[in-house]
Lab assay of single mutants.
Amino acid sequence: SLEGTEKASWLGEQPQFWSKTQVLDWISYQVEKNKYDASAIDFSRCDMDGATLCNCALEELRLVFGPLGDQLHAQLRDLTSS
């Protein structure tokens, strides 16, 4: 749920159509929501749009996002199937 936050830029759009900015917004949101240590994320490797993100295998997401990769992968699957 997104109570208390302004409507996120990526909400209501299919992930494969996200811009690079929307991807970063979504990642930041997941980091906050999961109380994850953002210093463990290599943000220089997050410079990708939604289509690229959706094409990432779980292993790739783990490389870039560490333990949060599993969470991101699961969330993406939910978003693309809805």
Rank of each mutant, 00 (worst) to 15 (best):
A57I: 01
E60H: 09
D47Y: 13
T21D: 14
T5F: 11
M48Q: 02
E59N: 03
T80E: 14
S44Q: 11
Q30A: 15
L58Y: 02
Y29F: 04
K20G: 03
D70Y: 07
V64W: 08
E60M: 08
D70W: 02
E32D: 10
V23R: 01
G50H: 00
A51H: 14
R62W: 03
D37C: 13
Y29Q: 07
K20C: 08
R45S: 14
Q30R: 03
P15V: 06
A40K: 10
N55G: 10
S81A: 09
C46S: 09
G12E: 13
Q71V: 13
T5A: 03
T52Q: 06
D70M: 10
E13P: 05
S9H: 05
F43W: 04
L24A: 13
T5P: 13
R62Q: 15
S28K: 12
T80R: 07
C54P: 01
T21R: 11
G69E: 00
W26G: 00
K33I: 12
E59P: 09
S39Q: 08
D47N: 10
A74N: 02
G4W: 04
E60I: 03
E59T: 15
W10N: 06
R45V: 10
E59A: 12
D25T: 03
C46P: 05
V23I: 01
F17W: 14
N55S: 09
L76T: 01
L2R: 04
Q14Y: 10
K35D: 15
A57H: 04
A38P: 07
L68C: 15
K35A: 09
S82C: 14
N55Q: 11
D42W: 03
L63G: 12
S19K: 06
S9R: 05
S82F: 14
L76I: 15
K33H: 10
Q75M: 13
E60A: 02
A51C: 04
T21F: 14
L61G: 00
C46H: 05
M48L: 11
T21C: 04
E60V: 03
S9V: 04
G4S: 08
E3C: 13
K33L: 13
S1T: 14
W10T: 02
G50R: 00
A74T: 14
L76K: 01
E3G: 07
T80W: 05
S39T: 08
F43Q: 03
E6M: 13
G4P: 08
A38K: 12
V64G: 13
G12H: 15
Q22F: 01
L63T: 15
D70S: 08
T52A: 12
C56I: 12
K7T: 06
D49R: 01
Q75I: 12
K7R: 12
K7P: 09
F17P: 00
Q71Y: 12
A40S: 11
K33D: 07
S81R: 11
P67C: 08
N55R: 10
T80S: 11
Y36F: 07
C56F: 02
L58V: 08
Q16M: 10
W18T: 00
K7F: 05
L63M: 14
L61Y: 05
K7G: 13
L61M: 08
Q30I: 02
D25G: 11
E32S: 08
G4A: 06
F43G: 06
Y29H: 14
G69V: 02
E59F: 04
A57K: 07
Q75F: 03
G66Y: 01
V31W: 01
V64P: 03
L68Q: 04
A57M: 10
E13K: 03
E6W: 12
E3W: 03
S1C: 05
Y36N: 04
E32K: 08
Q14V: 06
D70G: 07
L79M: 12
A74C: 06
S1F: 05
C56Y: 08
L72E: 00
K33T: 07
G12F: 15
E3Q: 03
D25V: 03
Q22I: 15
E13Q: 08
D47R: 13
L76C: 02
F17A: 12
D70I: 15
D70R: 04
D70T: 12
I27A: 03
P15I: 03
D37E: 10
L11N: 06
S9Q: 12
W10R: 03
C46W: 14
A74D: 09
A74E: 06
L72H: 01
K7H: 11
Q14E: 10
S39K: 11
F43D: 04
R77E: 06
L2C: 07
G69S: 11
T80K: 07
S81K: 03
N34L: 07
L79I: 02
I27T: 01
P67R: 12
P67S: 11
V31M: 11
L79W: 05
K7W: 09
Y36L: 10
G12T: 15
R77F: 04
G66I: 00
Q14R: 14
A51W: 06
K33E: 14
A57R: 09
R62L: 13
T21H: 09
S9A: 07
H73Y: 07
D37T: 11
L58Q: 12
E59Q: 07
F43M: 14
D78S: 12
Q22D: 03
D47M: 05
E59I: 01
L58H: 07
A57G: 13
D42R: 03
T5E: 12
E3D: 15
F17Q: 15
I41L: 15
L68I: 11
I27P: 01
D47E: 05
Q30S: 02
G50C: 01
D37N: 12
V23Q: 00
Q22P: 00
L24M: 07
G66C: 01
E59Y: 07
A40I: 08
W10P: 03
L68S: 04
V64A: 09
L76G: 00
S28F: 10
G4V: 06
A74Y: 08
D42L: 04
Y29T: 08
L11W: 09
S81Y: 02
T5W: 13
A40E: 15
E3A: 06
R77T: 10
L11K: 12
E60T: 08
T52R: 11
T52D: 05
N34W: 13
E32F: 02
L63Q: 11
I27R: 02
Q22W: 00
Q75Y: 12
N34I: 05
Q71P: 07
Q71N: 13
E32G: 06
V64T: 15
S19G: 07
W18E: 00
D37H: 05
Q30F: 00
S39L: 08
D37W: 03
A38W: 10
A8D: 06
F65P: 00
C46E: 07
L79Y: 13
K20I: 03
E60W: 04
S19N: 11
S81P: 02
L72A: 01
S81W: 10
L72Y: 02
D70H: 05
K7C: 10
K33M: 04
D25R: 12
D49T: 15
V64S: 13
A8W: 14
A38I: 15
V64R: 12
N55F: 04
F65H: 00
T21W: 06
W10S: 05
S19L: 02
A51N: 10
N34Q: 09
L68G: 03
K35F: 13
G66A: 01
V64Y: 07
K20H: 05
S82Y: 15
L2M: 15
D78L: 12
I27S: 00
L68M: 08
V23G: 00
Q75H: 11
A38V: 09
R62G: 04
W26Y: 04
L58A: 08
L58D: 05
V31F: 04
F17L: 09
K35T: 10
H73N: 07
K33W: 10
Q30T: 14
S39E: 14
P15R: 00
C54N: 05
S39R: 09
E60N: 07
A38M: 06
V64C: 09
Q16G: 12
L24D: 01
L24P: 00
A8V: 07
A40L: 12
L58I: 07
D78Y: 09
E3R: 09
V64I: 07
L61E: 01
V31L: 10
D78Q: 13
G50A: 01
D70E: 13
S9P: 04
P67Q: 07
S28M: 08
Q75K: 03
W10C: 04
Q22A: 11
D47A: 08
T21M: 04
S39V: 05
I27M: 03
Q14G: 11
S81T: 15
D49S: 08
